[in-house]
Design a protein around this nucleic acid. Sequence first.
RNA 1: CGGGGCGUAGCGCAGCCUGGUAGCGCAUCUGCUUUGGGAGCAGAGGGUCGUCGGUUCGAAUCCGACCGCCCCGACCA
Length: 484
Amino acid sequence: MADKNDAPQNTEITPQSKNFSQWYLDVVLRAELADYTEVKGCMAIRPYGYAIWELITQALDRRIKATGHVNAYFPLFIPSSLLMKEKEHVAGFAPQVAWVTKGGDEELAEPLVVRPTSEAIIGTLYAKWIKSWRDLPVLINQWANVVRWEKVTRPFLRTTEFLWQEGHTAHETAEEAQEETLKILALYKDCLETEMAIPVIDGEKSESEKFAGAARTYSVEALMGDGRALQAGTSHNLGQNFAKAFGIQFQGRDKALQHVWTTSWGMTTRLIGAAIMVHGDDNGLILPPRIAPYQVVIVPIPRGNWQETVLPKAREIKQALEARGIRVTLDDRDSYSPGWKFAEWELRGAPVRIEIGPKDIEKSAVMVARRDTRQKDSLAMDGLADAIAGRLDEIQKALFDRALKFRDEHTTRVSSYDEFKAAMEGRPGFVIAGWCGSADCEARIKADTQATLRNIPFGGAKVTGVCVKCGQPSSGEAWFAKAY
RNA sequence: CGGGGCGUAGCGCAGCCUGGUAGCGCAUCUGCUUUGGGAGCAGAGGGUCGUCGGUUCGAAUCCGACCGCCCCGACCA
């Protein structure tokens, strides 16, 4: 492989080091992932961005179904009285709901809210559907849009309307519900790491960060390229809170009438933002092959009568790669120069680019460039599909390894509050510290450093230490970071 | 919601101070020549200057209000 990288830098995109937020927006808009609309916080997801979402949803949906869940659909509107039934739930979501108060010209007798999440409406139906322990478990997932009225919005990361899946399950016992909650969290972790090449920390949320109405909330947390953390997925054990609020009862094996135990869990279009910020560089997007709409882009080099010589060969390669199950596009537009296409497809994050011109055809080879390293080398036409497939796997792995290395290099374990503050002021990232479990210490840390408690990882050290803030004994370690 | 910045062609900007024919680059369209890292020449199209109001003979320009977007902070997936 060529070891010099003299490809020029893209000049249309703000460098990450200059302004990471602007870099992110430049990439989203210029790579045509999304666009702003007339309504604040409501973005249009453009075909290229939506293709990424479709690949993510397919990977996730496959896993959700493989664990015995089925898909269904519930309404967009929820009577306001239903949302009110769970006290903590409504308190948590009230500031964020959009209201519908009129139908045509007529004032509605009871205002409707646009779902910010569907626990209320689904809980109401589960109360109708569940009578006996034989009806359990109920394992339903929904793919839907939801609306949360946000003050500050950013494409993909925080939008007023967003797309997600929300799983809602009901179980006979507390143990089963807990098992389900953790099973889904593991499923999320696998999906993020395997499909999106994003390493995540899985763990439990603190009391103050948990979902409104949940008994326990778990999350998977990822570290973005600017050193800030992003919650990539959450799984909630709702205990019997919603079952009691919505009257979801069943008659048990012991003949006694009792409340079910429920869970809910979700991942959103925010994942696209995560992929951008974990993998991208100053030349634009870098897509992990498994979620890349086009894993390979073929750029023919127009020379002489290239339409008769180069183009047929390029089409042949495209077919061979497709037959091998690779998503590939042939950029045969005559109105753009090869150099322009190179820059364009790097900006759009295509993992592999194949260049083919007269010189390659003479040698019965092609030039192959990979997006992550921007290195080019010549590969023989013979056995190309297998070689490309292998290279895509390499890239998928290299992206994960690079992200993991970055996270490790930006994670600091501290033993004193001064160290904590110093770590937060310096290079941002995760800070691991002992924590006593009090919301007060958590709040003070946030006030002092802007860092929030991301979660208490399962894999964390269980050693008995002391709280980094108050010095009281701590039973384990928590991960903190400035977060999106 | 607080602090700061910006709204002029699809995008990036100049013009505003000192009121008087709305400009530049990129992109787009046509034609020809090109094409191995964002091609060249020639021609063309495209803007109620964010919105509303005020001052004025006359407002992109001066004044006021509002709206939107971005950045930095408090709440959230």
